[in-house]
Structures are given as structure tokens and as C-alpha cells.
């Protein structure tokens, strides 16, 4: 089984996200980076499936040269191959991103055969365009369903059952492979890198390809902060002695 997971390097913010003086980007001077949370689960799923079915997991990212850090992290979790679609680090619109990823996948598959499963994060943590995986799947002519929180392949049948979370339960889909899925956190519990994994991640060879595609019809003009939530916080008390005041509040709000 061959599984590809597509990830995005994003800043790892704490309590507030600051914007650069020109308003064009998140100020990352004091921030670390990570892959989007949904995609950590995509990587974990790819590794688990390839462990179960004796397969090969590949990770791909479109981003600046620094995104190699996220590829090596994926390798430390057990991914065997890594591909960097290199950009100059500027913000790429969703049409352009999807088009570059789809043509890179075609190149990879021409060399090593098709991926049975391609996993995208349902949406990126930062720009959240909700479309790159769908556009790439359409360009490749493959089925895709989003919001997936459970995957069970049946290699004999050549299909994969996918569970999509809806309010109060799950919807089930049965996709013929090769298939594409947009996955969400909760699909699994990602592992932490082991010492052996860390060593492997240093040795892995990252294939670098130049990302190329035409610009689409959406352009970022600027980023801005939403109106601040200002609250006149009322202190109800200290420690367990505040319990009656808390339950008074429940009663006032008609909750008890």
C-alpha cells in the first residue's frame, strides 16, 4: 500500500497572534512552527496504515525551504519518503497551491506508481481555505470526501471505508482506491517521535522540486485583528469557599 500525506508548515501561536508591520503576514519572530493539527493525524494514519499493510508512506509539503523541518518531523514518526515543493515563502492562493501539488503528484506517480490513498488536512490551521485537497483530487480525477475521522481500507476489494463526523454521529462512505480524503484531528492519536525516529529523520533524503503553477483569482490584501473581546471580569471569590457564589450564578442563569 502506498500512502501520501500532504502537510502545511504553519506558525504555532499561543494566546495571541501578532501581525507584521506591513500587515501581510503573521509575525513569527517569537513563534515556533508545526504542521497543521489535522495533518499530524494524516501523517500518523499514513504511518499506521503502512505498518499494518507493509506499505510505504510519503510526506509532501508546498512551502519555503524551512518547511523541510516539518518533513523531517514526519520522518521521525515513521514516514519513509519526503518531498518539498519549494516556494519563495510568499502566500500562495488555493488554486495555485492545488495545481502545483496535483502536478507534483503526477510526477511522483509516473516514477513510482500510484498512491492508493492521498490524505490532506480538512483545512489548514492558518488560512483555512477548505479547498486545496478537493481541487487536487479533482485535477487527478479521484474521489474525495472531507471531514474524515475514521479510515478502514479493504485491499482485496480495492476500497476504503471512511467515517465523516456529523452532529451526533458519523456518516459512512465507501470509496474506490486510489482515493483522496480530507481528514480531521481525532482520526487517531499521533505518536511522539522516538529516539530511533529522530535519528532516521536526520538521515532521510528530502527530494526538492520547484513548485510551479499559475496564480488563481484570490489574492491576500492584508491581515487584521478582529475586534478585541473586552470583558469586565467579575470575580466571584477564592477557592472552594466560592462554591455557593458559583451555584448562585447557575441559578441566576436558569441552569439549575
Amino acid at each position: 500500500m502506498r500512502v501520501l500525506c500532504c502537510v502545511k508548515r504553519v506558525p504555532a501561536p499561543g494566546a495571541k497572534i501578532n501581525i507584521t508591520a506591513d500587515g501581510q503576514d503573521v509575525d513569527t519572530a517569537h513563534l515556533g512552527f508545526a504542521m497543521s493539527p489535522h495533518e499530524e493525524c494524516a501523517v500518523e494514519e499514513a504511518v499506521q496504515l503502512c505498518e499494518r499493510f507493509d506499505g510505504e508512506a510519503t510526506v509532501l509539503t508546498l512551502g519555503p525551504p524551512e518547511a523541510e523541518e516539518q518533513l523531517r518531523y514526519a520522518a521521525s514518526l515513521g514516514v519513509q519518503k519526503a518531498v518539498l515543493l519549494s516556494t519563495d515563502g510568499s502566500s500562495w492562493d488555493p488554486q495555485r497551491t492545488a495545481s502545483a501539488i496535483a502536478s507534483a503528484i503526477e510526477t511522483l506517480e509516473a516514477a513510482d506508481g500510484p498512491f492508493d490513498l492521498i490524505l490532506f488536512g480538512n483545512e489548514s490551521a492558518d488560512s483555512g481555505g477548505y479547498q486545496v485537497g478537493i481541487r487536487a483530487a479533482h485535477a487527478l480525477g479521484r474521489p474525495i470526501v472531507n471531514a474524515i475521522k475514521g479510515i478502514e481500507p479493504d485491499l482485496d476489494a480495492g476500497t476504503a471505508t471512511a467515517k465523516r463526523e456529523i452532529d451526533g454521529g458519523f456518516e459512512l462512505y465507501n470509496l474506490p482506491m486510489p482515493a483522496v480524503m480530507g481528514v480531521k484531528e481525532g482520526l487517531n492519536l499521533p505518536r511522539y517521535p522516538t529516539m530511533r525516529g529522530r535519528l532516521a529523520s536526520k538521515k532521510i533524503e528530502v527530494s526538492v522540486m520547484q513548485a510551479e503553477a499559475d496564480e488563481g483569482g484570490q489574492t491576500r490584501v492584508t491581515l487584521k485583528q478582529p475586534a478585541e473581546t473586552v470583558s469586565n471580569t467579575v470575580k466571584l471569590g477564592n477557592g472552594p469557599e466560592a462554591a455557593p457564589a458559583i451555584v448562585d450564578l447557575f441559578e441566576e442563569l436558569g441552569l439549575l
Binding site: 489574492t219 490584501v221 491581515l223 478582529p226
Partner: peptide
């Protein structure tokens, strides 16, 4: 020019749609 949500609503983006 449209205003849209980034970071789940922690930031807003002004985006040009053509």
C-alpha cells in the same frame, strides 16, 4: 475585496476576489 476568517476566527484576512 472580502473579509474572511483565518485561524478559526482569531485573525481576519482582506482578500481580493477577481
Amino acid at each position: 475585496e472580502l473579509t474572511r476568517v483565518q485561524w478559526g476566527g482569531s485573525l481576519l484576512e482582506q482578500s481580493q476576489l477577481s
